[in-house]
Amino acid sequence: MSVAKRIIPCLDVDKGRVVKGINFVDIVDAGDPVEVAKKYDSEGADEITFLDITASHEGRDTILSVVEKVANEVFIPLTVGGGVSDFNDVRDLLSVGADKVTINTAAVSNPNIINDVTEKIGRQCIVIAVDVKKIDNEYYVFTHGGRKNSMLSAYDWCMECQKRGAGEILLTSMDKDGTKDGFDLEILNTISTDLNIPLIASGGAGNLEHLHEAITKGNADAVLAASIFHFGEFSITEAKEYLKGKGILVR
């Protein structure tokens, strides 16, 4: 027996507002992170991820008040990422109610941040977001919002994160992201084979069978998706029913 496979909706937040046009008929303010998070909680989301895409430095404190407001009302695990650059950022987010923090570029430029957070707070709260792109049959890790090739091998980097004490890996295929064409099962499977910490699949979900494949063929422990849930194409409830019908353990 194992834990249930998780379904995680991901919300992009810009200056405190949910963006990328969430389309729910029964929500008054689709830009309010609290309302959207409550809606996902009521549908059975296992966790909610907020990605702060606020570009200006001054706007960055708004994410703290967003997390605090959501954590006051929604009682499932909350993961927050986007622009987390040092230990203090992690600590600040946890102190307002985040359960986990995702780190991307900062972990590549300074991998010791992983050891630091793990030793001081515990490995359960640190998720390393790894954005990968396939070039000439090799998967590379990209940073800076996908603009810069770090030249690190995706496999080696995930294993290093695990060794340094990361709690989970959130693996996004840049090639698949936005295509609605299904997850990159090849890289998911390659990494999950040797990973002893949970692997969250991201990038490419277009229908419910894609979620199923990420779990059965990609061996992912959790699937993260944005648009298929936001635009009301499928509800979390429908996704759970579908997976349950296929014999997957879900909550």
């Binding site: 834990v3 998780r6 359960q124 709690g167 989970e168 002893n196 910490i197 909550r251």
Partner: peptide, 12 residues
Amino acid sequence: RKLKIPHMGWNI
């Protein structure tokens, strides 16, 4: 068994 540790997530 090859179980992931910590035991993290929703269980019965």
